[in-house]
Simulated scan of single mutants.
Amino acid sequence: MSDPVYDLAADAALAAELAEEAGRILLDVRVSGRFEGKAMGAEGDHVANAYLVEALMAQRPDDGLLSEERKCDGSRLDKSRVWIVDPLDGTREYGEGRDDWAVHVALAVKGVATVGAVALPGLGLTLRSDRPQPLPPLNAPLRMLVSRSRPAAEAVAVAQTLGADLVPMGSAGAKAMAVVRGEADIYLHSGGQYEWDNCAPAAVALAYGLHCVRLDGQPLVYNRDDPYLPDLLICRAEVADAVTQAMASL
């Protein structure tokens, strides 16, 4: 029996619609004046997750679902289509009133990040896998994204080898989309992530023609029993070999 055919265009539109609406909900929480700091982050996580889970269960009831803010019952493991969401990526930045936080909505099909939308509500932007745009020229010198609080030693070393400038930024989604938008050229992460941290960003980045792999060169695989996915590289294809060689020299 052949696999069923799904309307991925409709899935992409749904991902963008849900990411944008969750972003609006999060902005409403932030301007309500009822919460501050960590309490704001906790409330934002809660309400955005409730919205996304309810919407996906209603509109794609036959698909699996993995969310950072929802206990997994294991049923997704038997599904070939699994929605992977992070209702609020960059809780700290959100609570601090910064713009470098995101909402991730992705669909993995047979373990591949196939559809994705990353909303950057603080910037009024949503990047979608179904609407890729031409990439701008490389930066000169190259620009490498690192964590605001704990830059990975590997990233710092690779940046030194390549003569790249370090660019501190908040959430994983914001960093990945900075490469998509041409604000940076390399996002190398080795400090530990989960599938919800990078599935939607990877789907968008792949659609834009970026190089997206694990640090050992293996593909990113989703909907595994253990959702821990500790490292990744998202970079311009033009510099992928140079980054790989720099990593090998460490």
Rank of each mutant, 00 (worst) to 15 (best):
D78F: 00
W101R: 06
T91G: 01
V105Q: 11
V109F: 12
V112Y: 14
R76S: 14
D89P: 06
H104Y: 06
G95N: 05
W83P: 01
S67T: 11
L65P: 00
D73F: 03
E96D: 10
K110H: 14
D89C: 04
D62I: 08
V85F: 08
L77W: 04
K110Y: 13
K71H: 13
R92Q: 14
G95E: 08
R98M: 15
T91W: 00
E93G: 00
L66I: 15
A113T: 08
G97I: 05
V82I: 10
D62W: 02
G95Q: 05
V103S: 06
A108S: 14
W101M: 09
E68Y: 06
V82P: 07
D89Q: 05
R81W: 07
G95L: 07
D62K: 02
R92G: 07
D62M: 06
P61D: 10
D73Y: 04
R81S: 08
V112T: 14
R98F: 15
R76Y: 08
V105N: 09
V103F: 03
L66G: 13
D86K: 00
S75F: 10
I84Y: 07
R92Y: 07
K110V: 10
R76V: 07
A102Y: 00
D73A: 04
A106D: 05
T91H: 01
A106S: 03
A106M: 03
D89S: 09
V82Q: 11
A108W: 10
